[in-house]
């Protein structure tokens, strides 16, 4: 291996050692394998669908990534309920009125911030472990969503619906939003002091505290930020799919954690990367599309998906590259 690559430029030499590399490879393979069925037709459609749907997973995944970076036991299980509550309340608030699109966004973000603050207070004031705190809080948020609207679907304003399903210069608008958030998250994680604090917190909380990292501030901002991103995703997803539904966030609990793991972030915290989140999000969509296109049954699909995820995680953790 080392001999074969010795004469290549060093950037190429090291790219396969990046933790996010394998998620992107797997996405590309799934993409090509799907197109082999159609002899190359529909590539643009598939790519555009993948970018659109992956952006939802990527946005909640980025929030979850920051939480998981905080170290063992830190995970936000309230993401689906926060999405549902934010989507429900913001669409009910807008009630189809174009003039209320931005205030509606503020409602969704406000719900996210409120959920984040609640989560953090449960963890800090009541000293409940984050898994239990966010799980029990999620029942509260889900109940509020049920209570506020009893599952009725209210249509989003037409302009908002057009924006979320539309594209600019051929790139889906949602993907632009998702990529913008990813860029901001990358700058925050890799180029800011706050990013160093989060990583330091996850690598060793005690050492971080003793070296002057404001650990409680870091934890608060991380949980609140993750919930705000979940609120934003709920707003976008509800607008995209023609209304909020009580079960709309359900599959994003597993996906938000899966993209973090597939993306090569350490599940034990302390070491994360943003490109992997997008790689994982694209993979989660493309693998299902590929297996559906090949007409495999649900059981086989789940087995293959599980096996591939294990392979990616094993490859990304570097056990194979010596």
């Amino acid at each position: 291996m080392a001999d074969a690559t010795a004469d290549r430029p060093s950037a190429v030499l090291s790219i396969h050692r990046r933790p996010w590399f394998w998620a992107w490879v797997a996405s590309a393979v799934a993409f090509v394998a799907t197109l082999m069925l159609t002899e190359g037709r529909g590539g643009g459609d598939l790519l555009s669908a993948a970018l659109t749907f992956a952006s939802f997973s990527a946005i909640v995944g980025i929030g979850q990534m920051f939480v998981i970076t905080l170290g063992p036991g830190n995970v936000d299980l309230s993401i689906p309920a926060t999405m549902t509550l934010a989507g429900t309340l913001s669409l009910k608030f807008m009630d189809g009125a174009t003039g209320l699109i931005l205030p509606g966004l503020a409602v969704a973000l406000g719900v996210g911030l409120g959920a984040g603050v609640t989560n953090y207070l449960l963890i800090r004031v009541l000293r409940i472990p984050p898994i239990i705190a966010t799980l029990s809080a999620s029942f509260l948020y889900q109940s509020l969503a049920i209570w506020s609207n009893r599952g009725l679907r209210i249509k989003p304003p037409a302009a908002l619906s057009d924006f979320t399903t539309g594209a600019t210069l051929g790139v889906p608008n949602l993907a632009l939003v998702g990529l913008g958030i990813a860029l901001a998250a990358w700058l925050l994680l890799e180029r800011s002091t706050f990013g160093r604090w989060i990583s330091a917190f996850g690598q060793n909380e005690r050492a971080a505290r003793l070296s002057g990292v404001p650990v409680e501030f870091v934890r608060a901002v991380t949980f609140i930020g993750a919930a705000a991103l979940a609120g934003l995703t709920g707003y976008l997803l509800a607008s995209f799919s023609g209304g909020a539904a009580l079960n709309m966030g359900q599959e994003y609990l597993l996906i938000s954690i899966a993209v973090v793991v597939i993306g090569g972030c350490s599940i034990a915290g302390g070491y994360s990367n943003v490109p992997g989140i997008w790689g994982g999000a694209l993979f989660m969509f493309l693998i299902v599309s590929m297996l559906n296109s090949y007409g495999l049954g649900a059981g086989v699909r789940l087995i293959v998906t599980g096996a591939i995820i294990i392979a990616i995680v094993a490859a990304a953790s570097g056990k194979e590259s010596t």
């Binding site: 799907t34 197109l35 069925l37 159609t38 037709r41 529909g42 590539g43 459609d45 598939l46 669908a49 993948a50 659109t52 749907f53 997803l237 995209f240 799919s241 539904a245 709309m248 599959e251 969509f285 493309l286 299902v288 599309s289 559906n292 296109s293």
Partner: peptide
């Protein structure tokens, strides 16, 4: 939303 996602993914093929 799940149906929309699944159908969008399989349609090209």
């Amino acid at each position: 939303d799940v149906a929309q996602k699944a159908v969008a993914g399989v349609l090209p093929s």
